[in-house]
Simulated scan of single mutants.
Amino acid sequence: MNRRRVIVAALPTAVVLVAAVVLLVVDRRTVVVSAPLGTMLLVAAVIVAAVTVVALVWRAHVRRAVSRAKEDATGSAAAEHRRFLDRLDHELKNPITAIRAAVAVSDAATPQLASIDAQTTRMARLVGDLRKLGELQTAPMERVPVDPGTIVTDVAATVGDAHGRDIRVTLPSAPWPLPSVTGDPDLLFTAVHNVVANAVKYSDPGDTVEIRGIERSGRVVVEVADTGRGIPAADVASVLQELARASNARDRPGSGLGLALVRTIVDRHGGTVTVDSHEGRGTRVSIELPVGVG
């Protein structure tokens, strides 16, 4: 309950009580006249105090009830979403497996075979990513101190080696390095890796890809920036959603789940993900995580 609201709500009661006490402690020559009025004011003060307490308690109860209702609604929506992903996984997995089996025993000279195989492989990967996304929302998560600087340097080395790119890393060392965060090191690696891999995918070999780490207001901020193709303004708001892809990204392979996985992982760590981009100039993705306790 807000302390200022309590003080403001109690002011009328305090005023009445002070007035009653003043009237009751006046000199004896006026006590006969003042006492009845003072008694009435004391009674009024008690009534006002009782009403104030009831009002404050009721208001707090209503706020808690509203908060619980919102949490229940959010939990129900999340559960329904997970059930949808599970159904989708079940419905798609068997047909894809059957198609891939048929391709495997078909005549290799069939012209359309390569295309069918490529598309079923893509669908299988999409189903796998959807399953992973659904599991991430509820699976038990390790919570240990994690050094974000180590995560960043490991991701830069992994993605840089895989794609032959020079990824710049800027981390603070003075007056102190980045503080640790609490979470699952493998999941946090995956989140940063997905963002950096996206930056490399949608930029050319001569473009810049940077990872920067800073501490700000009790949070660790990891920024991944590139001078690649950028995202059209109309698509920026939706790229963190499942299966969403920018309109200028259709020429590159992808499921549209990479950044959705990032958002889910960061949400489970109590953090936030934001995307800033200008088409033709580049993109910056910022991951903010609370500093670890202890």
Rank of each mutant, 00 (worst) to 15 (best):
3 R>V: 14
7 I>P: 00
8 V>I: 15
8 V>C: 01
10 A>E: 00
14 A>D: 00
15 V>W: 03
17 L>I: 05
22 V>Y: 01
24 L>H: 05
24 L>I: 00
25 V>E: 03
28 R>M: 02
38 G>K: 01
48 V>M: 07
50 A>Q: 08
56 L>T: 04
58 W>S: 10
61 H>Y: 10
62 V>W: 08
63 R>E: 14
63 R>V: 07
64 R>H: 13
67 S>T: 08
67 S>A: 13
73 A>V: 07
74 T>E: 14
79 A>R: 06
83 R>C: 11
95 P>W: 08
96 I>S: 12
99 I>H: 03
99 I>K: 00
106 S>N: 07
110 T>I: 15
111 P>I: 07
113 L>R: 08
115 S>A: 13
116 I>K: 10
121 T>Q: 10
124 A>K: 15
124 A>R: 13
125 R>K: 12
132 K>S: 11
132 K>D: 05
141 M>T: 04
142 E>W: 00
147 D>A: 04
150 T>N: 05
151 I>Y: 03
153 T>G: 04
155 V>F: 02
159 V>C: 05
161 D>P: 02
164 G>D: 09
177 P>A: 08
178 L>I: 09
179 P>K: 06
181 V>R: 00
186 D>R: 08
192 V>F: 01
193 H>M: 06
194 N>H: 15
194 N>I: 03
195 V>K: 04
196 V>L: 08
200 V>Q: 01
200 V>E: 01
203 S>T: 15
204 D>V: 13
205 P>T: 07
206 G>A: 09
206 G>S: 14
208 T>R: 14
211 I>H: 11
213 G>N: 05
217 S>I: 04
219 R>A: 11
222 V>S: 00
222 V>P: 02
233 A>R: 07
234 A>Y: 07
236 V>N: 03
239 V>K: 02
240 L>E: 14
240 L>R: 09
242 E>R: 13
243 L>E: 11
243 L>T: 13
244 A>E: 15
245 R>P: 01
250 R>V: 09
251 D>T: 10
252 R>A: 12
265 I>K: 02
267 D>L: 15
269 H>E: 06
271 G>T: 04
271 G>F: 02
271 G>L: 00
271 G>V: 03
272 T>E: 14
277 S>P: 08
281 R>Q: 13
282 G>W: 03
282 G>S: 12
290 P>D: 00
291 V>K: 03
